[in-house]
Amino acid sequence: MTVKTTAGRYGRALRSSVVLHAVMAVGGLIMALYLVAHMYGNLKIFSGQAAFDGYSSYLRTIGEPLLPYSGALWILRVVLLVSVGAHIYAAFVLWHRARAATGGKGGWRYQTTRNRRGVQRSYASFTMRWGGIVILLFVIYHLLHLTANVIAPGGASESPYERMINGFSIWWVVLSYVIALIALGFHLRHGVWSAFASLGANTSVVRRRRLNQLAYAVTIVIIGGFLIPPVSILMGWVR
């Protein structure tokens, strides 16, 4: 079982869990940065239909005439798609390795039923994998709803502003988004901190506390920012 050659060790380390976690971390942080931008754009709903729809069409003209129409947006989409793909690929390989290392039972591999929840795990840290799947399913639903408008509860529209108003005037649409955002919040809470730790940034006990505080701050800003527009629309504060 000993890895003998130097090249063999190098190759093995290149495919190691450490590297996969770094890949997952970079992909995740890119997506988190995107979420901040996306959240900021959503808040323009409070500036009225002209501003919101104008912002939406502006996004397609970024970089013109250097880039073609929608060019910047497609570059962003490709970057996000690669990030999502790498993130999910790494997650599944690591999930498989963790199962193989523990006989497929993870933290439940002992006969005793005591202390199955461990000592210091958090709800967030233990729901990263299934929580991630929930988020993936939500993203598909969300793209079909507000990007492609294939799913159009409350009525389809060419105007992004109207799509948003139509959708979030319905209580169960808002509820589905709130549930997904809670799942996303837990994922970000552990994900942001552990991404930095995976990349080697956790250098001391103090730094560990700071990175965890950062994760909380990022989570609160992103989730809070995303919750405000749908809830405001449902309450009738934005029409």
Partner: peptide, 15 residues
């Protein structure tokens, strides 16, 4: 690290 993974240990999720 190469040996760690070759032995079949899993990766760290910072729990």
């Amino acid at each position: 690290t190469a040996q760690h993974d070759a032995e079949g240990f899993g990766g760290c999720t910072q729990i």
